[in-house]
Design a protein around this nucleic acid. Sequence first.
DNA 1: TCTAGATATATCGAGACGATATATCTTCCT
DNA 2: AGGAAGATATATCGTCTCGATATATCTAGA
Lengths: 183, 183
Amino acid sequence: MDLSATAYVILGMVSREPRSGYEIKAAVDGTTRFFWAASYGQIYPELKRLSEAGLIEGVDASQGDRKRTRYAITADGTAELKDWLRRPPETAEMREEGLLKLFFSGVLKPAEAVETLRTMRQRRLELARRLRSLEPERAEAAPEDSYPLMVLRGGVEFNEWFADWCERMEAQLLEPAIEEGSS
Amino acid sequence: MDLSATAYVILGMVSREPRSGYEIKAAVDGTTRFFWAASYGQIYPELKRLSEAGLIEGVDASQGDRKRTRYAITADGTAELKDWLRRPPETAEMREEGLLKLFFSGVLKPAEAVETLRTMRQRRLELARRLRSLEPERAEAAPEDSYPLMVLRGGVEFNEWFADWCERMEAQLLEPAIEEGSS
DNA sequence: TCTAGATATATCGAGACGATATATCTTCCT
DNA sequence: AGGAAGATATATCGTCTCGATATATCTAGA
């Protein structure tokens, strides 16, 4: 079976409890979005494909005129999810506009390049704070499954590390004289 | 002016010296690819657009029947690049399939989830080693412009931090008993 | 009663990625 | 000298992805 990584996000999300496309999107936005996002434009077509492949099963959960289909994982779907989890991860990408700007900052004065570092640092600190505030609810949500909390804490730590790096680079840019005159 | 971030990568790359599309691709692959990639499918159309907008200028550098156009940045292009560098960075994304797998690893036994962490760790250590080996040539290439080297070293540090995190999480997964029985 | 916002599904255009087609040039081995 | 392999150079294609938006219903509260 050859599925996109986004297909596995969906499989994983419905493996915990049956969910509608809307609920999957909300779950992704609240959890994996920081290292793997998914849009409606991916989710709905993928739900159809997975349903046709027999990996998930749609269950009507309409209320009155409000149509809704919740999808549950099947035995085949669970097997496929486990297979994927056991295969080594491949994709690992990053897009950081701040680093890109820093890379080309030679045409600016150091005092200007420092601004990029300050913005990056603020963003990372803010994100770390936001993620940290999610810890309690994540810990309560599913105490038997510690992996989401582990990943969440990893996110906090990463963002704090990044903020610290920005701070150190800022200091380095502002005192270049020491290295220069010593040797 | 409203340009894509990839357009600025191109502007930045030709601001150092005139380059062909092929040379830009090679330069990106050797440097910014780790936090901002660019494909031929983006580069060639973008070179046309930037040329039409007067931000870069094509200079014929053909040799015999082998056609080649090198692009140099114009005064307008330099102004546009600096403007962009002074604006705060926006995009910051990450796609890490390993973290995604870890997130859903509750359906596996801990001994299996550990494999994902081990693979991630190995990949990060290998990348850190590869980046570290580029430091000398990067330092020599343009001693007057320290930013590329700063970013490169940041990459080394980031990958080493990540590898270390994987190692710690692995240890945590293999000895969960201590926490359990203490309180 | 009215309105704002949440729930739910679906689709569109723009952009990006990876792979590949085409062609020429250079290098190096036999 | 011949020939293969690989580097240089430009271009394009299909697929995937993103963000925004259209449509419609339901809920909560002013």
